[in-house]
Write a protein that binds this DNA or RNA. Structure first.
Lengths: 252, 252
DNA sequence: CGGCGGCTTGAAGGACGTCAAGATTAGTGG
DNA sequence: CCACTAATCTTGACGTCCTTCAAGCCGCCG
């Protein structure tokens, strides 16, 4: 099904690509609170910054890593969106999740010591790359980093379980939209207007629906005045109602 | 739907309950390799054993913890089976997973700092209880423990994602049986004959099926000579074929 | 322009859920 | 040990939600 995508591994970071000021990026990142000065002594912070490597840009379809690659690093998304997915031997793809700016990628690779999935850029992506062995070593000296790693890992367990339940198409679509909104909001972006960086097919796959069903539910939501969709641009018009529909999934 | 279950919190361990020799239990446990002497210096091992508390027995329907309880400890199952599940405000239950002897419970609670689910004993259950703050502190001194925690957490992310995909009833049932067999085998139990400690309804719920469908698939598998079911006792007769059916889910 | 991929929309079919009834077992108390 | 009830499990008939198939639309790019 999936055509042969271009494979490009870890381009070295282009310092001239205008990647913005560090402080601005880091303040929205899942690791930001440990990367930014605050409670850590100078040499410790120095060590942390030493093991962070800026990589990118990646472009649509580029692979950050592929299933089976030896595990070495975890990544924080600085800009763009990353899709993680598995592809079985019959070529059927399964979209595990989408990673927005400020979120981590690769945490599920620690145990098998190999990446258990592909990570693909959905648009232009910039990352921070953390060598995991170095990070783990540092974590023994800096309890704050260890804590943060434990939290991030534990949170990912719950995320994976979220959409695993037995819900209908509307509930899943509503939950998907609300989750996106909340995640954007948590990083300081608009919670009501955003652009879907993934094609309908990827949304469908991730929610275990047919692409046609995603289309139909979008239309129904729009007819009900819940959202406004135009191509990949979405505006949430009635988040209260959407949240109500998704409550059985988000349960809070 | 679910009748009011008896709530019994953390009975203190009864030292006279004949809980077997420690070495035997610990050698099959997910934490065993760090609990047992091997590579650790004496005082470190001493610390570890100090923070392990044996609890149990719990009986059918007893709660180890409930959703919303403040997170304090993670648990290793020493004997019996534990079910984790959420119950939404409409009373609909969602079974997140089953935890066999040697496996951990509570890892998904680190992040929210509250247990995000109930943990219920499906039969007579004995546990090791680890205070998580104490464990985390110890982990800063003992890299082996930190590593093991990272691995356990990371592995749980993958487990949660396993059954999240879009598969039919037969594929999910086959995967469920194979996974059980592998997990029993990993702990030294028989991989071909075991007892399902959970009712059909819980299996169904966990696999997002109706209980009737579970019944029908069991029957079909038996008619095809793949398994032999009698009540809750299962014998796998053709693991190769079952594994083939489940390959799209287990993909390895 | 023409071709291609992504998206939408409609009609038909299937896999599984729901409903209902019966079978088997477990639990309880006499 | 046996009756009695409740729970669990099985089996069949029917309905439904979603998928599948097919066709048409739109924007993009060579």
């Amino acid at each position: 099904m999936s055509s042969t995508r271009p494979i490009r591994h870890l381009p070295t970071y282009d310092p001239g690509a205008g990647d913005g000021d560090e402080l601005n990026f880091c303040s929205t990142c899942a690791f930001g609170e440990v990367c930014l000065p605050g409670g850590f002594d100078k040499p410790a912070l120095q060590d942390l910054h030493c093991l962070v490597e800026h990589v990118g840009p990646f472009h649509v379809g580029d692979c950050l890593f592929r299933a089976g690659d030896a595990f070495e690093s975890i990544f924080a998304v600085r800009a763009g969106t990353v899709k993680t997915c598995t592809v079985d031997e019959e070529g059927r793809e399964q979209v595990l999740g989408f990673h927005l700016p400020g979120e981590m990628v690769g945490l599920n690779a620690i145990h098998p010591a190999r990446y258990p999935c592909d990570a693909v850029a959905l648009d232009t992506v910039y990352l921070c790359r953390f060598s995991f062995p170095a990070l783990a070593t540092l974590a023994t000296r800096l309890p704050g980093i260890q804590q943060q790693l434990f939290r991030l890992l534990s949170a990912d367990i719950g995320k994976a379980a979220l959409l695993a339940g037995d819900y209908n198409a509307s509930e899943r679509m509503a939950a998907f939209l609300i989750l996106l909104a909340d995640r954007y909001a948590a990083r300081g972006f608009s919670a009501t207007r955003f652009r879907l960086s993934m094609p309908r097919g990827d949304i469908a796959n991730h929610l275990r629906l047919a692409a046609e069903t995603v289309s139909r539910v979008f239309r129904r939501f729009q007819d009900q005045g819940l959202i406004h969709v135009e191509e990949r641009d979405v505006e949430l018009l009635d988040t209260a109602e959407l949240r109500k529909m998704a409550r059985c999934i988000l349960h809070d």
